[in-house]
Each structure stands twice: as structure tokens, then as C-alpha cells.
């Protein structure tokens, strides 16, 4: 059992070294910094400046979609097409370990990179480091990243092609955001508004600027549960496919 844990962490290191080496990580950091910091400041009053977190997060969806699509597809897609999975499956590694480690490594990198870049907002918006809405924003972003990673993983496993899956996942994810009603929970913006508004009201005792609807605890829980449930379902399907069905030739 200990050796299996060791292999899991070893695979995560392998993944980080192989797929996030120069220039991928540098490109990711640049894209993230650009997307996070290139947001307009809407609220003038510093007492209300936490509101900028909402606008900031909302507007980086496009860049998140591209970044996640490219990196997840590159990692899974190219390791299938170039034969790295075949090489790994020649060693005493369980398929589940390979799947879990790849996904974990990528998700960790996205969350850490976006959170690190986003935390610059604490300084720029003169927020307190203990501003709860910063952490709520990060939570909302992490949930969306989880959903994006899961969906892209499924697409790349089915297509087994890096380029096709980058386009398919980016079009699908960005398409969903543009087709559905932005105030519904099908949209990232709708879900994020519900979470941000509910916790904003609790912590700052007024609704955030620009949100007329008052959301309840149930709404906030539902907004958090949707990406979690969909991601869990997609990951279970992906893991079953990868472990039990997928052939590597």
C-alpha cells in the first residue's frame, strides 16, 4: 500500500516535470496573470472594493477555458498518441494511479497558478488578507476549474487526439457559457453570482453591487454542488473507461 502511495506521488512529479516544463508553465503563468490583472476596476468606494473580485473572476472564463483545454489535452492526448501511456503501462503501475495522478497534477497546477495570480488582487484592491470574499472567489474559481478539467479529460480520452480535444473542449465550454442564460445555474457566471451574492450578504451585510436577486443558502449550496456532481460523474466515467475499457495501441 505504501509503495502504491509512493508511485502516485512519483507519477505526479513525473507529470509536473514532463508536461509543465519550459515553456508550458511560463505560458500558463503569463496567460493567467494577463487574464487576472487585465480587468477593469468597477467599484470606486474602497469599502465596497471586494466587488471587483466578482468582476475579475467572471471575466477570466475565456482564458481559463483555453488554458485548461490546452494543458489537459496536451497532457492526456499527447501521452496517448506519443506512446507515453504505453510506456507507463509497461511498469507495475495501476491504470487508476496513472489516471488519478495526471488529473490531480493538472488540477493542482491550475488552482495554484490561478490562485497565486488572483491573490495579487488583494494588494491591488487594498483588501485585507483575511477578506472572506477572496477565499469565496477562489472556491468558485476552483469549482469551475474542476468542471473544466473533468470535461476536457473525458473529451481527450474519447478522441485520443490532442488537437481535436483542445478545440472540442474549448468550443464546448465556451459555447455553454454563451448559449445558456447567464443568470441560470447552467452558466459559470450564474453559479458564481449565487455563491458570491449569498456569502457577500452574510459577510458584508449588503448585496454586492449589480446583483439585485437575493440568493438563499440552498441556492449557494446548489451552485456549488452542480459543478462538483457533474465533475464527479465525469471523473467516474473517465476512470472506468481508462481503467477497464481503454485499449492502448
Amino acid at each position: 500500500m505504501k509503495s502504491e502511495h509512493n508511485n502516485f506521488f512519483r507519477l505526479i512529479l513525473w507529470e509536473l516535470q514532463e508536461y509543465l516544463n519550459f515553456p508550458m508553465l511560463e505560458i500558463l503563468v503569463f496567460v493567467v496573470l494577463y487574464s487576472v490583472l487585465n480587468q477593469p476596476t468597477v467599484v470606486i468606494s474602497y469599502s465596497m472594493s471586494y466587488n471587483n473580485l466578482r468582476f475579475g473572476i467572471r471575466d477570466i472564463t475565456f482564458f481559463m477555458t483555453l488554458g485548461v483545454g490546452a494543458l489537459v489535452s496536451r497532457s492526456f492526448g499527447s501521452s496517448i498518441s506519443k506512446g507515453e501511456i504505453k510506456t507507463l503501462l509497461s511498469y507495475p503501475l495501476k491504470r487508476g494511479q496513472i489516471f488519478a495522478s495526471k488529473f490531480t497534477a493538472l488540477f493542482m497546477v491550475f488552482v495554484c497558478t490561478y490562485t497565486a495570480a488572483f491573490s495579487v488582487q488583494i494588494y491591488l484592491m487594498r483588501l485585507n488578507f483575511f477578506e472572506p470574499m477572496f477565499y469565496i472567489s477562489v472556491l468558485g474559481m476552483a469549482l469551475q476549474l474542476l468542471l473544466m478539467c473533468s470535461l476536457t479529460t473525458i473529451i481527450v480520452l474519447l478522441t485520443k487526439n490532442e488537437v481535436i480535444s483542445i478545440f472540442a473542449s474549448a468550443l464546448l465550454l465556451y459555447g455553454i457559457e454563451n448559449v445558456v442564460n447567464p443568470s441560470s445555474f447552467s452558466s459559470f457566471v450564474g453559479r458564481f453570482n449565487a455563491i458570491f451574492s449569498y456569502f457577500g450578504k452574510i459577510t458584508h451585510e449588503t448585496l454586492p453591487v449589480g446583483i439585485g436577486t437575493e440568493y438563499t443558502l440552498n441556492d449557494a449550496v446548489l451552485a456549488m454542488s452542480i459543478p462538483l456532481a457533474i465533475s464527479a460523474l465525469l471523473l467516474v466515467i473517465g476512470a472506468i473507461y481508462f481503467v477497464r475499457i481503454m485499449e492502448v495501441d
Partner: peptide
């Protein structure tokens, strides 16, 4: 394998260290 896909950015010692760890 006939077509090998070893992690190209690794040094040979680092790569084999990983493989030895897997075993």
C-alpha cells in the same frame, strides 16, 4: 517497445530513478 516515448526533458538518471521507484 518499438516506438519508445520516454520523457524527453528528463535526464537519463532522473528517468531511471522514477522507473526504479515504480518497481
Amino acid at each position: 517497445h518499438e516506438i519508445t516515448a520516454y520523457p524527453e526533458s528528463f535526464t537519463s538518471i532522473r528517468f531511471l530513478e522514477h522507473v526504479a521507484g515504480f518497481y
